[in-house]
Amino acid sequence: MSIFNVNPVTVDDYRRLARRRLPRFLFDYIDGGANAEQTLADNVNGFDRYRLKQRVMRNVDDVDTSTTLAGFEAAMPMTLAPVGMAGMFARRGETLGARAANANRVPFTCSTLGICPVEEIVQATGKPIWFQLYMLRDREVVQSLLKRAEAAGVNTLVFTVDLPVPGKRLRDFRNGMLGTNLCSKLSKAAQLLYSPRWIMDVAIKGKPHVIGNLSEVVPNPDDLNEYKAFIDSQFDASVTWKDIEWLRTIWPGKLIIKGVMEVGDAQAAVAAGADGVIVSNHGGRQLDSVSSSIAKLPAIAKALGDQTEVYIDSGIRNGIDVVKAIALGARGVLIGRPWIYAMAGAGEQGVNDLLNNFQSEIRTAMALMGVNRLEEITGELIEEV
């Protein structure tokens, strides 16, 4: 970032700040995707296929960006997505994100693999949050995590279904993040030398560095390698929609299924009892060379109609993207990388400023399109080019 660019505004601005402040292996972890990262790029570029329609001479003196997301009265159609190890990008990062989300009246989603446990996050805001979970092989652990989340005040479960096995994220191998040999350790140590601010803020002051929600089930909670071994052993490639039906019987709150990209899967999610689905390819971090999420949204939204709420993540980088997603049938969007970039680059204030800018862009776009309410943003106000 140029010294003349004093105030970060866009997601790209915060990305550059994050790149300067984070150790390379951590920046690559959040910034990278699977294999050649084609889908990662397509997620962002896919929004360029669509153009909004500008209409004039309409009374837009009362623009309102508010909506309801899974029962949450939100100031805009946006949720902070679950991000694993968010607490490694800034000190107690999940609590920072939750406080910023609360200040801007949007939901925050805690990842199963977050550094801060769900109780710490809820305590930081005093408000309910959303909780993300995978189907683990040990179903007793699943039930225990759900009871823990419910006891903490979680009322919405975001269940990720697109991870029967982890994608091939080559950056994590290249930079030594996943290695345990001497070469990998030396590489990470060298990278840390260029991140003194991170060392003080996170490595020293941000302890404990444990996966908080799993601290009771991993033998040595102080060893991140043991967490990785545990998670690797818990990926369950045998999961089917029958398991989601079982999940529906034990979870009393809202259930949103994250990771559907095809109409048939979205319909199966509804049949299994989902209150919402998230059109998502995991931010391009799972199967490379699949379509962008935005390309899949219209067909899924049309097929589901009013049966359930449809959301989208992957590739949203500004308020214009949010408006496009709404016009194509989404109830709301989830952002992951953007809020992590902002937090890593500028802390809690960075996330606050980013969310404020998103809302301002949404409001401005609505006014220039001649609408005052989100429900007025329909397919008639967008075109494919």
Rank of each mutant, 00 (worst) to 15 (best):
R19K: 14
N45V: 07
F47P: 02
Y29Q: 12
G46N: 01
N43V: 07
T39R: 04
L40D: 06
A41M: 04
R24W: 01
N43G: 05
D48L: 15
R51G: 14
R20V: 05
R24M: 00
Y50N: 01
R21M: 11
G32H: 02
V56Y: 12
K53V: 15
L22P: 08
P23T: 03
Q54I: 15
R51T: 15
G33I: 01
N59P: 00
R58S: 13
T39Q: 03
P23I: 01
L22M: 09
R24D: 02
G46V: 04
Q54T: 10
V44H: 11
M57P: 00
D48W: 06
Y29H: 11
A18Q: 07
F27L: 08
A34G: 08
L26V: 07
R20A: 06
M57T: 04
D42W: 00
D31Y: 04
F25N: 09
D42Q: 12
D48K: 14
D48H: 10
R58Y: 01
D28A: 06
P23M: 03
R55K: 10
Y50W: 14
D31E: 10
V44E: 13
R21F: 02
R51V: 15
R24K: 07
Y29C: 13
A36I: 03
F47D: 14
G33V: 01
R55H: 10
F27D: 11
N43W: 01
R19T: 04
R55V: 15
P23F: 04
E37P: 08
E37S: 06
V44M: 09
R19F: 02
D42P: 05
A36S: 08
D42T: 00
N35K: 07
G32N: 07
R20C: 05
N45L: 15
L22V: 06
D31V: 01
Q38L: 13
I30Q: 12
D28V: 02
D31S: 02
D28S: 07
F47T: 09
R58L: 11
A34N: 04
M57N: 11
R58P: 00
K53H: 12
